[in-house]
Amino acid sequence: MEHNYSYPLDPSWSTAEIVTVIKMLRTVEDAYEVGTTTERVLTDYRHFKEVVSTKAGEKQLGRKFAKLSGYQLYDVVQAAKNATGKKVKLEVNKR
């Protein structure tokens, strides 16, 4: 799907770190658009936390991404952590 927004990235991140963060944000998009696996969300989130290690940093990036895309990083991660099945699929909740 084409998106008319850019990802909120930190220019101090290395190329590998940027790839890791974009991968997580794409997983969030997939969770809303087509669904994804619980395992993918949790694996990508674990790698994401190696780049964005603080809660404050995660919240800030999550807010920026939600403002741009309408998709909630926090909601996707919580859905995966609390999932009883192997799939995560969320509906966009306009806050």
Rank of each mutant, 00 (worst) to 15 (best):
S69M: 10
G85M: 03
I22F: 06
N93D: 15
M24I: 03
W13A: 04
R63S: 11
D10Y: 07
T15E: 13
L73S: 02
W13L: 07
A80W: 00
H3W: 12
L61H: 00
T54S: 13
P8D: 08
V19F: 10
V52N: 02
H47F: 12
R95Q: 14
R40Y: 04
M24L: 15
T27I: 01
Y71P: 08
T20L: 03
A66R: 10
R46G: 04
V51R: 05
L9A: 11
K59M: 13
L90A: 02
T27H: 08
I18C: 12
K94L: 09
Q78R: 12
T36I: 09
P8G: 05
L9R: 01
Q60T: 13
Q60L: 12
K64H: 11
L42R: 05
T54E: 05
Y32S: 04
L9E: 02
M24Y: 09
D75F: 06
V34M: 09
T36W: 08
R40K: 14
A31V: 04
F65K: 02
K59D: 15
K55E: 13
R40L: 13
L73E: 03
G85D: 15
T54R: 03
A83T: 01
D44Q: 09
Q72H: 11
E17D: 15
W13R: 07
K23A: 15
T20N: 03
I22S: 03
T15S: 12
R26W: 06
R95C: 00
R40I: 09
V51P: 01
T27D: 04
I18H: 10
S12R: 14
V88L: 03
R63W: 01
Q78G: 01
G85R: 11
K23F: 04
I22D: 08
G70M: 04
D30N: 12
A31Q: 03
K59G: 08
E29D: 14
D75T: 09
R46M: 10
T43G: 02
Y7R: 03
T27E: 00
R26L: 05
K59R: 14
T38I: 10
T20W: 02
V52T: 06
T54W: 08
G57N: 08
Q72R: 11
T84E: 14
T27A: 07
Y32M: 02
N82Y: 13
T38C: 11
V34R: 11
V88H: 02
H3D: 10
L68D: 10
T54L: 04
E91F: 08
V77Q: 00
T27P: 02
V41P: 04
G35H: 05
A80V: 06
T15A: 13
F65A: 00
T36D: 05
S69Y: 04
N4P: 00
V77K: 05
S12G: 11
V76M: 09
S69N: 07
K94R: 11
D75M: 09
L25I: 05
H3I: 12
R26F: 07
V88A: 06
R46K: 14
K87T: 15
F65E: 01
L68Q: 15
V52R: 06
T38G: 06
K49T: 15
T43R: 12
G57Y: 05
T43M: 10
L68K: 13
L42K: 04
E29G: 08
T15D: 13
E33M: 08
V34P: 01
V76Q: 01
S69D: 08
N4T: 09
R95E: 15
Y7S: 06
E33H: 11
R26A: 01
